[in-house]
Amino acid sequence: MEFLIDFFSGYGYFAVFFVLLACGFGLPIPEDVTLVSGGVISGLGYTNVHIMLVVSMIGVLAGDSTMYWLGRIYGKKILRFRLIKPLVRGGRLSAVRKMFDKYGNRLLFTARFLPGLRAVVYLVSGITNRVNYARFVFVDFCAAIISVPIWVYLGDFGASNLDWVEEQMHKGQAIIYVILVAVIAFVAWKIYKMKKKKKVKINEAN
């Protein structure tokens, strides 16, 4: 995080936007660390935190949208691109496709909190054309407006104490994962109940 803070301090909003855009392509830099670092330089007086929030939101949505449109325009051909191959290795593509078939658009929302699969989910959503861009960006925005402000304002608030910020980040990440698991479990339970109810109706009809 110290490296990002130094980098952002020198180049401001543009640097934050650029790194977030690159994160959308699967750059191995945690998005939450990038957002917190952007908030830190605001707390140190290099930028305005509210403008930083807007820039961060635009950067996040632009990165995600780029992956969507790459999949939408090139289709499965994009999977042969050298920069894309590392994202879909290790069975990730197959796993995401199965998740998409099972959870549909709900996966788009939870993808914001799945760093290892986020870029692949957005890519597959474009390839399969299961969702139009208006709905994609709306769902992505609804997820981003939850996480992005939290990280940016956390960095701004604790700019003078990075150890405290890192401690809160770890706590926040743990809470997010617990909530995510709970949401996934709830959705799976609802789907199971719907299928069970449908099966009962079919049996009664017969």
Rank of each mutant, 00 (worst) to 15 (best):
2 E>L: 10
2 E>M: 05
3 F>I: 13
5 I>Q: 01
7 F>I: 07
8 F>I: 06
8 F>N: 02
9 S>W: 02
17 F>G: 00
18 F>H: 01
18 F>M: 08
21 L>C: 07
24 G>F: 02
25 F>A: 10
26 G>H: 08
32 D>F: 06
35 L>I: 01
35 L>D: 01
36 V>M: 14
36 V>P: 04
42 S>T: 07
45 G>M: 02
46 Y>H: 09
47 T>E: 00
48 N>Q: 06
49 V>G: 00
51 I>G: 00
52 M>I: 02
55 V>Q: 00
58 I>A: 08
58 I>L: 09
65 S>Q: 09
66 T>I: 10
71 G>Q: 06
73 I>Q: 12
73 I>T: 13
77 K>V: 13
82 R>K: 15
83 L>H: 12
84 I>V: 15
84 I>K: 12
90 G>S: 06
92 R>E: 05
93 L>P: 04
96 V>G: 01
99 M>L: 12
101 D>Q: 06
105 N>R: 08
107 L>A: 05
109 F>W: 09
110 T>P: 03
111 A>F: 02
114 L>F: 11
121 V>G: 02
127 I>M: 12
127 I>Q: 06
140 D>S: 11
142 C>N: 08
142 C>Y: 04
144 A>R: 04
145 I>G: 04
147 S>V: 09
147 S>L: 11
150 I>V: 15
151 W>R: 08
152 V>C: 03
153 Y>D: 03
160 S>G: 11
167 E>L: 11
168 Q>F: 11
174 A>S: 09
175 I>G: 09
177 Y>M: 14
178 V>A: 11
179 I>E: 03
179 I>L: 15
181 V>R: 06
185 A>G: 09
186 F>Y: 13
189 W>D: 14
190 K>V: 10
193 K>M: 14
194 M>V: 14
199 K>C: 11
200 V>E: 13
205 A>N: 10
